[in-house]
């Protein structure tokens, strides 16, 4: 009896594995960053609107802030754009843009079309600093605490539930900073 049922049991097991695999497929595509919990790499980049001014990640030491990776070529960045605006408005912390591998003219046109909701933009045309940040796709959003430690990274567009999660995390970081 067991001999007859064995292939069926094995088959059932395989189907089960397949179903679990299908459900977790999206999650597994996300590569957890080893940089979370570690200091943000120090790099200096020119600003988009004021190319003569360079800004470094160390400039923001002492406050909670957000770094948002985007590019005018990135479809999902358009989708998350309204939520980035709300994040900047409702969080009360600087949301800095990280303009990744983009033509300056395209980036500026994109901003004038959709609205510039960021505090300012760091421009990484070559993509060298993005490698140090472990960026592998836009959009990506980093939360950095007052000691300059990356505390959270969200990969993919921000939507309503992600926005709420980010706002709650930023609140906790702000409380931590003031205590």
């Amino acid at each position: 009896m067991i001999r007859l049922l064995l292939p069926l049991i094995v088959f059932g097991g395989l189907v089960g594995l397949l179903l679990i695999g299908m459900q977790t497929a999206e999650e597994r595509k996300i590569v957890a960053s080893p940089l979370v919990g570690r200091p943000i790499p120090n790099f200096e980049l020119p600003r988009l609107h004021e190319p003569n001014i360079s800004t470094s990640t160390a400039d923001r030491l002492g406050e909670v802030w957000v770094l948002n990776v985007w590019g005018s070529w990135c479809q999902s960045c358009r989708i998350e754009h309204p939520y980035v605006g709300r994040l900047a408005e409702e969080s009360g912390v600087p949301v800095v843009g990280f303009n990744w591998k983009d033509e300056q003219a395209d980036a500026k046109r994109w901003l004038s079309q959709f609205g510039d909701v960021w505090a300012y933009h760091m421009v990484d045309f070559e993509g060298r600093s993005a490698i140090d940040l472990g960026v592998y796709g836009a959009p990506e959003t980093f939360l950095i605490d007052q000691r300059g430690i990356i505390r959270h990274k969200h990969i993919g567009p921000i939507d309503e539930s992600v926005l709420r999660d980010l706002l709650a995390r930023i609140d906790r970081l702000k409380q931590e900073a003031s205590s």
């Binding site: 590569v31 957890a32 960053s33 080893p34 940089l35 490698i131 140090d132 940040l133 472990g134």
Partner: peptide, 8 residues
């Protein structure tokens, strides 16, 4: 590579 992108 691992420091930036993990063992993956």
């Amino acid at each position: 590579m691992v420091e930036r992108y993990g063992d993956f």
